[in-house]
Structures are given as C-alpha cells and as structure tokens.
C-alpha cells in the first residue's frame, strides 16, 4: 500500500519535472538566433580558448575582463579582431589563427543581435511586485 503511494507520488513528480524541463528546452523566444556553421565554429573556438574564464555573456562568466554580449555593436569588428590578434596589456595574446578569429567574431555577432547587456533604463520595465520585463 505504502509502496504504491510512493511510486504514484514519484510518477507525478517525474511527469511534472520532465514536462517543465521540456517547456524550457523548446523555448524559442522572438530574439533567438540560430547559429550559422561559421558562428557555431566560433562558439567552439570561444570554448577552446576558455574565454569565459575572464569574460561574461549576459553578465555570466568570470569577471576579470568586460562583458562581451554587445562588444560588436559597442566597438566594432575590427577592434575585436585586433584585440584577439595581439592581446592587450591586460589580456594575454592567446594565439588564435586568422580563421578562428573570423569564426569567433561571427559568434559574437550572433550574440550581439540576440539581446542587450548591460540593460539601459529604457530597455526594461519594473513591475510593482519586484519583477522586471525586458522592453526592447
């Protein structure tokens, strides 16, 4: 009797959990970007050099360097390519090939057009109950 009840509860629980997870997995919000093959290669390059140890996307990552979500629209492709090629006084030169640099830039462009971070005042709206909605 008891075992049955436990299994029934467990079944309901798993049903709920996978239902919820599936809803999250399939989410395709209006600003979603499917990556081109080149941008996808760029994402793998971003992982290969572990850029996220020092940088963030949407504020998530390590904090030694700046957030890169909108670096393309902020500073332009040429600037990003130069930094990747030579490093700076503070960022090490990581030795990416030309092809890898092109790919990372394609990836960062896709990220750039997917949203904004940090948010400007007119890009969100705070609700009375403490939530905020994005507004761009």
């Amino acid at each position: 009797m008891k075992a049955k009840r436990v299994f029934f509860l467990l079944f309901l629980f798993l049903l709920f959990m996978f239902g919820y997870s599936w809803q999250v997995y399939r989410a395709f919000p209006k600003r979603e970007r499917l990556l081109s093959d080149k941008a996808y290669q760029g994402k793998l390059v971003f992982q290969k050099y572990h850029c996220i140890a020092c940088h963030q996307l949407y504020g998530l990552g390590g904090f030694m360097g700046p957030d890169l979500t909108n670096v393309i629209s902020r500073s332009g492709e040429a600037y990003v390519k130069t930094i990747l090629q030579y490093g700076t006084a503070r960022m090490p030169r990581l030795g990416l090939t030309q092809e890898e640099i092109e790919a990372v830039v394609a990836f960062l462009k896709a990220v750039d057009s997917s949203g904004r971070f940090p948010l400007k005042k007119d890009e969100y709206k705070i609700q009375w109950y403490g939530d905020y909605y994005l507004h761009y």
Binding site: A27, E32, R33, L35, L57, A110, G115
Partner: peptide, 10 residues
C-alpha cells in the same frame, strides 16, 4: 548547441 538563448538558458 546551435542556438544562443536556448543554449544559455539550458
């Protein structure tokens, strides 16, 4: 893997 927002979310 070939998405931006879905991937960050998951």
């Amino acid at each position: 893997g070939k998405t931006v927002l879905r991937d960050i979310t998951v």
